[in-house]
């Protein structure tokens, strides 16, 4: 396996506040591969924004290290660190465009910092504006743009120095659902056509589903689990994972007296009428309490919570049927969800 583009080793961050030390992150270990779209999800206050800032050393970690292409950011001198940051574009929830600069001059900004000749910078900026679909807005000022347009300009700006990585800090959290979709589509396209590694920080599962290959779930300053999005979606192992992914189920299901199971669809059986077959084969009714499918990376993923018949023998028959059909399931109680 080739060397990960970003390695985070034993990273921790403590903040000194008036009320003493606050631990924002602890024992974070992550390898991010070149060319992947990597998601970091967590509830607010989990430490994900601090984590993304540690990746480009906007926040200096108090423990552990961050390696970019094998080189530790902590060991770099300030000039080298600034050059390394130019290999990592960043976009923000609040866009953070320069309000007094036109769109094209905003995109030229990172190039100005590296001393690129003006005409060359402008040419590059115009190319990027085309990439993000805003050629006609070159002379406009940020105040004249919508949120989605601002984020497109911010993406173009982040791409100006040909970075290898783009860090997205809640980049779609201030946008409406349609705009979110188009911005995520743009990020995915940039990832595919330019091979830029994308790291996405979010609190929205939908963002992870839409574009990420792998995801880390962060909870209470630590990584709860890491894995392929398809795997974590079908079988979240951590409590926070279940809460984030199956969150809706917990609210909607009211349990009756008898046993419940969660049947997991991991893409293979989506063409097969699993429940109907089970009912026909076992000659016993089941009660569908909750069902949900999502399109994750092109395959159907989902889960269904089914109440088994009160009769133990009939319930066992249904479970045996699932086992022999190799359909993953787990028994659930109210506390599990």
């Amino acid at each position: 396996m080739e060397q990960p583009i970003i390695q985070i080793k034993g990273l921790g961050k403590e903040f000194q506040t008036t009320e003493g030390k606050v631990r924002a992150l602890g024992d974070i270990n992550l390898d991010i591969q070149s060319g992947e779209v990597f998601g970091i999800i967590g509830l607010s206050g989990a430490g994900k924004s601090t984590l993304v800032r540690c990746i480009n050393f906007l926040e200096v970690p108090t423990e552990g290290e961050v390696l970019f292409e094998g080189e530790s950011l902590g060991s770099m001198n300030p000039a080298r660190l600034r050059r390394t940051r130019q290999s990592m574009g960043m976009i923000f929830q609040q866009f953070n465009l320069l309000a007094q600069r036109s769109v094209v001059r905003n995109i030229c900004f990172p190039l100005e910092l590296t001393g690129t000749p003006k005409s060359e910078a402008k040419k590059r900026a115009m190319e990027l504006l085309k990439t993000v679909g805003l050629e006609d807005k070159a002379g406009a000022y940020p105040a004249q743009l919508s949120g989605g347009q601002k984020q497109r300009v911010a993406i173009a700006r982040a791409l100006a120095t040909n970075p290898k990585v783009i860090l997205c800090d809640e980049a779609t959290s201030a946008l409406d659902p349609n705009t979110t979709k188009s911005i995520l589509g743009l990020l995915k396209e940039i990832n595919k056509t330019m091979g830029v590694t994308v790291i996405v920080i979010t609190h929205e599962m939908a963002v992870i589903e839409a574009i990420c290959d792998r995801v880390a779930i962060i909870d209470k300053s630590q990584i709860a689990e890491v894995g392929k999005v398809s795997e974590i979606f079908s079988e979240p192992k951590s409590k926070i994972g279940r809460q984030l992914i199956l969150g809706d189920a917990a609210r909607q299901v009211k349990f009756g007296g008898s046993r419940q199971i969660r049947i997991i669809f991991d893409g293979r059986e989506s063409t097969e009428p699993v429940i109907s077959n089970m009912v026909l084969a076992c000659k016993t009714p089941v009660n569908i309490m909750y069902a949900q499918t999502r399109d994750v990376g092109g395959t159907a993923m989902g889960q269904m919570i089914v109440q088994l018949p009160g009769d133990e023998a009939e319930a066992d028959r249904a479970l045996r049927y699932l086992e022999t059909s190799k359909i993953p399931y787990e028994e659930v109680t109210e506390h599990d969800i």
Partner: peptide
């Protein structure tokens, strides 16, 4: 807005560049 300064930093701006190209013009 602190976010704008943070964005400049993330693009590798030095302190001088932040003063001349961000703080004063903005």
């Amino acid at each position: 807005d602190g976010g704008v300064v943070e964005a400049a930093k993330s693009m590798g701006a030095s302190d001088w560049q932040i003063i001349w190209k961000v703080l004063l013009p903005e």
